[in-house]
């Protein structure tokens, strides 16, 4: 079975959707060790699993030879989480508005919208090697 690799505040996950729980545990444990409020931990975990799911499923197309890398850093009362995949660049401009009446019953397409709502900052840029890098920033104190 594929397993994630953890090095300090970085987790490297093979592109298997069943590993999403390990990403959640990794993110939550590092926030909990800094006594972050439970509600803020939930917001950050929602967003980190959101972006990691996107990387595993849509970016890497569940190719087990490709990985998603998530790194957390803590400065000035903020957490920064950088998540990169090895797929092709995902342009956020292509997402339809999930609040449009015609999109309300779609099962997908609201992840980035939710992340924008819950995080203080969201950046989506091309990753080195062709994938997508997503940076999340949230105040935690």
């Amino acid at each position: 079975m594929l397993k994630p690799e953890i090095k300090g505040d970085t987790i490297i996950v093979p592109s298997d959707p069943s590993l999403i729980g390990e990403i959640d545990e990794f993110v939550e444990s590092r926030l909990r060790s800094r006594n972050v409020d439970d509600s803020i931990i939930a917001d950050i975990a929602i967003c980190a699993t959101e972006i990691a799911n996107n990387g595993i499923i849509h970016g890497n197309k569940e190719d087990p030879d490709k990985t998603v890398t998530l790194t957390m850093s803590f400065t000035n009362g903020e957490v920064m989480i950088v998540i990169s995949d090895q797929g092709s660049y995902f342009n956020p401009e292509t997402i339809e508005n999930p609040l449009d009446e015609k999109n309300l019953l779609r099962e997908v397409g609201r992840g980035i919208f939710i992340v924008r709502s819950l995080m203080d900052r969201l950046e989506i840029t091309p990753a080195n090697g062709g994938g997508t890098t997503v940076t999340l920033v949230k105040k935690i104190t």
Binding site: A42, A45, L105, V108, R110, G111, I114
Partner: peptide, 17 residues
């Protein structure tokens, strides 16, 4: 249920449909 992300919301919509 502590929380769900957009995948969870998508699952709820699928169940509703």
């Amino acid at each position: 249920v502590d929380w769900m992300n957009s995948t969870g919301l998508g699952i709820m919509i699928s169940c509703l449909k």
